[in-house]
Nucleic acid binder design. Structure first.
Lengths: 217, 217, 217, 217
DNA sequence: TATGAATGAGGCTTCATTCAT
DNA sequence: AATGAATGAAGCCTCATTCAT
């Protein structure tokens, strides 16, 4: 399903599902993706707890029970939605971290990419930040750990740049790190795909603001 | 600082409730405040939906039914908790806005105060930002409206300072506003009262970072 | 008119409570009577189940718990109200039955008296007819038995009069009996003390209608 | 479901519900009707307030939660039961009123039909008269308004007949109206389907009694 | 593939009642 | 004579989930 979500869905379309046999497209997987997308949108709009399986079914033209043909539990549904987002996050983060750009360049790249990613996956990113509490403790831990990894890295970059004299010595790297994530991750709350600025432009603004705040004049 | 809260409660104690008869402290109101505080902490720890009235009662040494001697509904309980925070917010915001300091001074003052406020009322601020969805539509509207008011004001301050040449012309005031609120309001997620830095110090860091990012060099 | 009822109370005032000692009026009994009257009115207006002890207390300027200083249970309260009415009913019924008037005269007397009684004790009679189900099985039985006794008597009177040729032979005495009670006992539903006709006039109308319907022309 | 309800149910069977697909009888609707009938009987026997959803479920071989597969709330359940009765009432009333029979003929027809209707729908009529207080204010209003309409019509008929000299001038039409409804509507309290007389016979008795009471000799 | 019927656990809330003060 | 705090039982209702068809 390359596309055409119901009007309210601000997320970018997921890539089409894999096909089992070339001749016969796997309809099940396609429908499954549809279930995920619909649920994601509804969770985004009303919250996870407030969305019932009955409602999800209705939105899909299915009865409550039929939804379980595609999912194994409501929590799994949420997890899968969040996991997709999470996975993407990991991907670009690993790439950036592995690069040999100077630390502030990495930071710039992370801010830009993460802002764009958040903005292009509004509903999923929103769920990632607001509904993780409804996941099982173990799954929460996975997510928290990954976030911590990102924070550690950013902290390390800033610390490194500071040691190298590129970042103001009078700033606390840890607080700066929190500030950056607070700023970037807030995008899901107010970004509108049809707004005045694109995700890229917003990323650039963030970089300007933060980096010129950090940098030694 | 009359009251010893259970260890987990990071919020500053509320001032004692009004007394009905001057000589004899109003026990009821005190207990009621205890209920609010306990519930606030539990909502903070597990989330509003995940906290049952049975659990709240148990934590207070009451049966679930008995909790209703002090509250009228679970949602009202949440609202009251959030409203206290909300009210305080309004108070200092109005004071700052009414002052005749230059716009960037107002901004500095707001960032500092709001950061401190968030940090000193960790659980309540947390609920304010994460559980407002569990409130009735009307109550949600109240909160959203107030937040919008703050954002409008900050936007106006930045715009004004920019027009006066005090803020870089290449930055978008609106994005800057969002960035500031994202930063400041993220404090409830990571601030720890027993941490290395005080709320005031964090506020100062934020100001440094943001203002030197905004200001024309 | 010894007692000042709240405006809505259509029942005739109960006689003042007995005094324990001539010099010191028994305040408790008086207050108790007030509780009965207030409860009776509220049960009448909202129904027994729908009236809470909290509300009864509030109406009396008391707290929930304090009401129990005067009553032993909510059901007892209802029973006592209904019992007063019941007792009166028994009194005049016994008097009529014991008289040596001819059967149709007794019938006339019963219709008149019962209509008047119903009308003068609107709330209590209403409860007698509508809320008896909330009483304990045993108490229900008492009431049902008494009503049956009245019906038996009326049936006997009509049968006797019919045997004597005073009542039409083509009418079924049992149905006539039911009809009469249905008619008379419906008064609590529509009688208004400030209406066009007095209770006595209504009683007379009933007699006219029924007796001329029954009597051989 | 043409029949054979559990022994205690004195109401006539409802006509079968509409079918969704012509070939396959709609089981759901049938079961739903069963729920209504069972609940009606239980409300009749113990009263609405005294009947719990748990009990209704048990009687149907269901858990309390499962009952809600067929109903939306306990009050809705009551309303639907009462509404069916109400609807029937309206139907025959409109027919009679629209006829061009002379007023006393209409009266006779109404008494007969209403008595029969009450008797053939004992439980529902009973609920109609005794449990309407448990309905929402708006629903109460609907019912009260309809009853008032019937009373107005009967009052008009009697008044008309009286003006034409067919009814005794010394009787008050309004009281006569109340008397008639009191009489007819009391049937649910004592009618037994297996009794000595049929509903039709009882209706005839009522007519005899009332009309010969009303008519000028 | 999807339905329909039911489960079962649990949630929020209400309320008559008690009892020490 | 009345209060305030709490109890405890029960009530209505919701919902994720299952499973035979």
């Amino acid at each position: 399903m390359t596309s055409a979500e119901s009007a309210g869905e601000p997320d970018a379309p997921r890539p089409p599902a894999r096909r089992r046999s070339p001749g016969r497209p796997d309809r099940r997987a396609a429908r499954r993706e549809q279930v995920l997308d619909t649920a994601a949108r509804m969770f985004f709009e009303r919250g996870y707890e407030a969305t019932t399986t009955t409602e999800i079914g209705a939105e899909l033209g299915l009865l409550k029970g039929s939804v379980y043909y595609y999912i194994s539990s409501k929590e799994d549904l949420l997890y899968e939605i969040v996991e997709q987002y999470h996975r993407d996050t990991r991907t670009y983060f690993d790439r950036i971290e592995a690069s040999d750009a100077p630390p502030l360049e990495k930071l710039r790249e992370l801010i830009t990419t993460e802002t764009a990613h958040t903005a292009t996956n509004l509903t999923r990113s929103s769920l990632f930040y607001t509904e993780w509490r409804s996941l099982s403790p173990e799954r929460q831990r996975t997510i928290v750990a990954e976030r911590a990894r990102h924070e550690q890295a950013v902290l390390a970059w800033i610390t490194e740049a500071r040691a190298a004299g590129a970042v103001r010595a009078d700033l606390d790297p840890k607080i700066a790190t929190y500030a950056i994530f607070g700023m970037v991750n807030s995008a899901y709350r107010w970004f509108r795909p049809d707004g005045r600025l694109t995700a890229e432009e917003i990323g650039r603004e963030f970089c300007e603001l933060v980096l010129s705040g950090l940098e030694v004049r």
